[in-house]
């Protein structure tokens, strides 16, 4: 019975997942190729951007393949990717890829950040490859529409943090003399910093919505809207750090590279909240399902 289950897993969602990850990997390589090709251009200067279409096509292809992987798993198990780490990672690879692809398409000035953002996605990609694609049991408290709102808002929050981190990453990379020439054609740090913080403002809105939807879901599911479990505490701290960073950025002359470090710090904290806390503590959502 277990062997049959394993084979079913291998022959349904995994091929889509693997090809999706290959597409992401090729998109990453194309982004680096483009960066090397445009080395040395001045800020705002006309540069050859033909590789960007390829990056976008590969990224979109990866998103479509991951959508197929999620759909296969969904049909096979009868529930969405909300429970174990394996399916949470695929789901995030899909949503982060999708939101970044839309941003990449609509805001061309963001495109050089692909060399920072796509490797971050590959951290998730490598992680998912190391996990057993085990089936999950869907808890009865997950049949609640607020779960969708909670997860959906959370995906936007993390994606905007990721894009902000991509911009912050470029700012920091430009401080390394050997690397700086690769990003010289980009707008000045001030512009990148300005954009990065705009994404963090959007992240704050979606983080707030995620917390509200999560509280409503928790009230329905467990009879309390807030209980300081590991995930709730970590999420609240994340919201607080984001709010504090925005207050500091708007009120003081914070050096741009310090602001960039703060953005990356917030993203790392959000990453650990998403993928670390629920599996670190049995008392988190995992423990009360």
């Amino acid at each position: 019975m277990m062997n049959e289950m394993s084979e079913a897993t291998v022959f349904t969602e995994l091929p889509w997942l693997y090809t999706g990850l290959v597409a992401y990997a090729l998109a990453t390589l194309s982004a680096f190729y483009g960066l090397v090709r445009t080395r040395g251009g001045d800020a705002g200067a006309a540069v050859n951007r033909s590789h960007e279409s390829l990056v976008l096509a590969l990224l979109t292809g990866g998103v479509i393949l991951l959508t197929a992987s999620l759909a296969e798993r969904w049909l096979r198990l009868g529930h969405g990717p909300f429970v174990n780490l394996f399916e949470l990672l695929i789901s995030q690879l899909f949503s982060l890829g999708l939101i970044y692809a839309v941003a990449y398409w609509r805001l061309p000035v963001l495109r050089p950040t692909a060399v920072v953002v796509l490797p971050m996605l590959w951290v998730l990609g490598t992680w998912v490859l190391l996990l057993e694609p085990s089936d999950s049991h869907y808890p009865p408290t997950y049949y609640n529409e607020w779960l969708w709102a909670h997860v959906g808002f959370g995906k936007f929050f993390l994606a905007f943090c990721l894009i902000g981190s991509g911009l912050a990453g470029v700012i920091l990379l430009r401080r390394i003399p050997r690397v700086a020439p690769f990003f010289r054609h980009l707008p000045p740090d001030k512009v990148l910093d300005h954009m990065a913080w705009r994404f963090m403002l959007l992240a704050l809105i979606f983080d707030s919505l995620m917390l509200i939807a999560g509280a409503v879901w928790a009230q329905d599911a467990w009879g309390r809207y807030w209980a300081w479990d590991a995930l709730e505490t970590s999420s609240f701290l994340n919201w607080l750090f984001l709010g504090a960073a925005l207050h500091a950025r708007l009120s003081y002359r914070i050096p741009i590279h310090v602001g960039a470090l703060a953005i990356i710090g917030i993203f790392v904290f959000a990453f650990l909240t998403y993928f670390g806390t629920p599996f670190y503590s049995e008392a988190a959502h995992k423990g009360v399902i």
Partner: peptide, 20 residues
């Protein structure tokens, strides 16, 4: 975006911080 073109929008806020 050029170095020149970006400056007016990103001027420092009166209270010392940065506008977004």
């Amino acid at each position: 975006v050029s170095r020149k073109g970006a400056e007016p929008e990103l001027e420092t806020a009166p209270w010392g911080g940065g506008k977004l």
